[in-house]
Design a protein around this nucleic acid. Structure first.
Lengths: 200, 200
DNA sequence: TTGGTATTTGACCAATCGGTCAAAGACACG
DNA sequence: CGTGTCTTTGACCGATTGGTCAAATACCAA
């Protein structure tokens, strides 16, 4: 009914932004409303004026994020150049890990805890999207545009290798001694998948 | 001084076992002593009779695990056959993900939360071990035994792709519709790294 | 300025948190 | 048996949790 006020929009955004920061680090159960309120520079009752509960903030974040997160895969074009499409996907996923690490960690936390809030989306939207794109990849392989690979496990590989740099950032930084991982990561991951997928 | 009683050993083990189950799912902050006590079939004060605090259980788990977890990498033999050594490492890591998923998730949770309890081990033990093995891998590449790769990012790739099957198990299961991931995963990951590393 | 609405907050609540403690119960050994 | 130690637990503690509510304040259109 009512248009959201300027204040409403600003505070809702601040709460979601704060929630993203805190939830992505401590997970749903490890996060407190006080942390979110402090991070958003609001009082706790004020946070609950905009969201009915802690869970409501969490759900709002997950729902808003799932589409964005799956978008690069959705973009995969069956009519495009097979290798180029897949390499663009890899690159875009890695850039998203670099530019939106909190989003990556939020999902990682949710999955680690058994995905209690998005299990339906995983077996529904996610599965059907992956199955659809797996068929595309299989067709490319059958046509000899890329080397034959198990398409589902190929997708898992891409997810694993790109999101690793966001989810395990602390470890990566520790091992690399603080050097920026991304230039090297981009070169390595690109080379890896090119070698895997380029037909002989 | 004192040998641990039979009862002591049994209950300490039960607590660590329960802690592993619960901590690996909910992380340190998301886990309660009551959960651990219930899972271990003990009363809460009884748990605290064996460990001084919740954190003491967590630390005991992490310390006991770090060595085991890094062991496959430590095994990498500079004098062995380069490709065979690396492929054995990949295989063993994947088997560990399959056989000890809770251990993998415990580390994942700790890292996601910024590794507050093991940051020292990451920049110390872990970094020097990886640096040492990276030198070995680089020497292999220089000798033409494997294709040239950035050794640090190669290690990240192996970690990412193997631990993904434990850490994101719920997602993998959802996408695969409940089929056992591991036969396919083993074939795919093996093939991927063989293709990456085999010299022309 | 006024009045109505939207926003903010201090005080408070029951439930749960990690942890303590004294006392009860189980156990081993003479 | 008895006795000293090891183990277990119910009751309890202060702090923190997610959440409520009435009252205070800020905002805005007439």
């Amino acid at each position: 009914m009512n248009e959201p006020t300027r204040i409403q929009r600003r505070n809702r955004d601040a709460i979601l932004e704060a929630g993203l920061t805190v939830f992505s680090q401590y997970g749903f159960r490890g996060t407190t409303l006080d942390q979110i309120a402090t991070e958003a520079s609001l009082s706790k009752p004020n946070v609950l004026y905009y969201f009915a509960s802690k869970e409501a903030i969490y759900i709002a974040l997950l729902e808003g994020l799932l589409d964005t997160w799956l978008d690069p895969l959705r973009t995969l074009d069956a009519d495009g150049d097979a290798l180029h499409e897949l390499m663009s996907y890899v690159t875009r996923k890695l850039e998203m890990s670099r530019d939106f690490p909190r989003e990556s960690r939020l999902f990682a936390n949710e999955i680690l805890q058994g995905a209690p809030h998005i299990h339906g989306a995983l077996t529904g939207e996610l599965k059907s999207l992956v199955d659809e794109k797996a068929a595309v990849i299989e067709a490319w392989a059958a046509a000899g545009r890329i080397r034959p690979v198990d398409p589902h496990h190929l997708v898992f590989s891409i997810w694993a290798m790109t999101q690793h740099y966001a989810d395990f950032d602390v470890q990566v930084q520790a091992v690399l001694g603080g050097r920026d991982p991304y230039p090297g990561a981009l070169a390595h991951v690109t080379m890896l998948f090119e070698r895997l997928l380029t037909p002989d």
